[in-house]
Amino acid sequence: MLAYAFRRVLSAIPIALIAVTACFFILRLAPGGPFDGERALPPTVLANLRAHYNLDQPLINQYFIYIWRLLHGDLGPSMVIDGFNVSQLIAIGFPFTLTMALTAFVIATAIGMLAGMVAAVYQNKWPDYVLVLAVMIGVLIPNFLMAALLQLWFGVYLRWFPAGGWVNGSWWHLVLPVTVLAWPHAGRISRLMRGSMIEVLGTNYVRTARSKGLGERLVLARHAIKPALLPVVSYLGPGLSYLLTGSLAVEQIFGLPGIGKYFVTAALNRDYGVVLGTTILYMFIILALNLIVDLVYAWLDPKVRYR
């Protein structure tokens, strides 16, 4: 297992390099720049700024300078937010983003698995129809639209929850953002769990267990849940990465102090360092989550052997 994990890490290095290279050149070749503000800078000041950030050099030279710094763990400075480098901005905003995404992940995974099992046990009955309808709403409506609707209904009209902001660290302000993030994730989990559980409940060993007189709860607990979890586990890694990336837009809509506000501002202002640093961070998170999912999958299914 450790040898397989080591090979996966080595195989991910070229993928990471290709992704970094593509992001670097796409950003640098896009129209505009970090110093193209509403107020034009004097030519001397602009030239000094470009020289300070190596923007006066050929593009290929800028690329190799960035890769060399990246290999030494330096994500570079922010070209728009004065006094901060990219690592400091990530250290400030990412813990909040990670906390919110993990909270939504745990809640959505638990609800989705439970809803999928109930829908499979009561297949083609009213609990199945109600649960399928509820989860489909979360899957079909985009998170930015769902965020606006929940803000309007529960934050403005009913005033049950704060419509946005983060005051004095109150977790009450996270109810609506976590709901927006968790709903579609719970819907996908429940659909996977329902289909997998229906398939498992129709297998021969489950029918044999029932014929021996085991109760329905024992059949589910001992024979059905673990094999039914395999498709769900395969999705959990990408699912958590979707929550992390989806939280960028949700944080911006609700005005939360996560990494999303830095990323959106940096993208609008062509702050190359912040956009690249955030992209690299999420890329490595996705690769790490996929590796963990593969290892857990092998633990759940003894028939799986990675060679």
Rank of each mutant, 00 (worst) to 15 (best):
F263I: 12
N168Q: 13
L2P: 00
L89H: 07
Y306I: 05
G33E: 13
G258F: 08
V80S: 13
G73M: 15
N61Q: 15
Y122V: 04
L27T: 04
V233I: 13
A148I: 11
W299M: 07
I13E: 12
S211Q: 05
D271W: 12
W153I: 07
S211W: 10
V264C: 12
A224H: 02
F154N: 02
I13C: 10
T21M: 15
L276Y: 02
A182F: 00
G76M: 15
A16R: 08
V139E: 13
A40E: 07
R8K: 13
L174R: 08
M136L: 14
V118I: 15
H52M: 12
S196T: 07
V275A: 09
T245K: 06
W171G: 00
L236V: 04
G164M: 09
V132F: 11
H185C: 01
N269D: 09
R307C: 02
N269L: 15
M283A: 09
L201I: 02
D56N: 11
E216C: 07
I65N: 14
Y129N: 03
N204T: 02
R307K: 07
A110F: 14
G213M: 12
P142A: 07
P302W: 15
N143C: 04
G255C: 12
M136E: 07
V304C: 08
L27R: 06
S87R: 14
A186Q: 02
L291R: 08
R270H: 08
V130N: 13
S247H: 03
A186S: 05
A91D: 08
Y66E: 07
A51Y: 05
Y282A: 05
V139Q: 15
A147T: 00
V80D: 03
P142F: 00
A104P: 02
G213Y: 12
L158P: 00
S78T: 02
G116F: 13
A91F: 10
Y297Q: 10
Y66C: 11
V275N: 06
P14T: 03
V178W: 00
I90C: 12
R8P: 01
L220R: 10
G33I: 06
L17E: 05
T203K: 14
G37I: 07
P231W: 15
L49F: 06
G239C: 11
N124L: 12
A298H: 11
M193Y: 11
I111S: 10
P95L: 14
F144R: 01
P58K: 15
S78Q: 09
F254N: 00
A115Y: 04
I90T: 01
L281P: 02
I13S: 10
R307L: 11
L71Q: 06
H72A: 09
L133T: 01
G239E: 08
P238H: 07
V232Y: 15
F35E: 06
P58G: 09
T208G: 10
L49M: 15
G83E: 10
L2Y: 06
I292G: 04
L131M: 11
L98K: 03
G32F: 14
R217M: 08
L244W: 03
T99E: 13
V178T: 03
S241M: 11
G195P: 01
Q57T: 08
R8E: 06
L149T: 01
T208Y: 12
E199T: 01
V264N: 10
F25Y: 11
M136Y: 08
R191V: 04
Q88A: 12
R7W: 09
G246Q: 00
R210V: 01
V118S: 05
I67K: 15
V135F: 14
Y242R: 04
F6V: 01
M117C: 09
V118D: 10
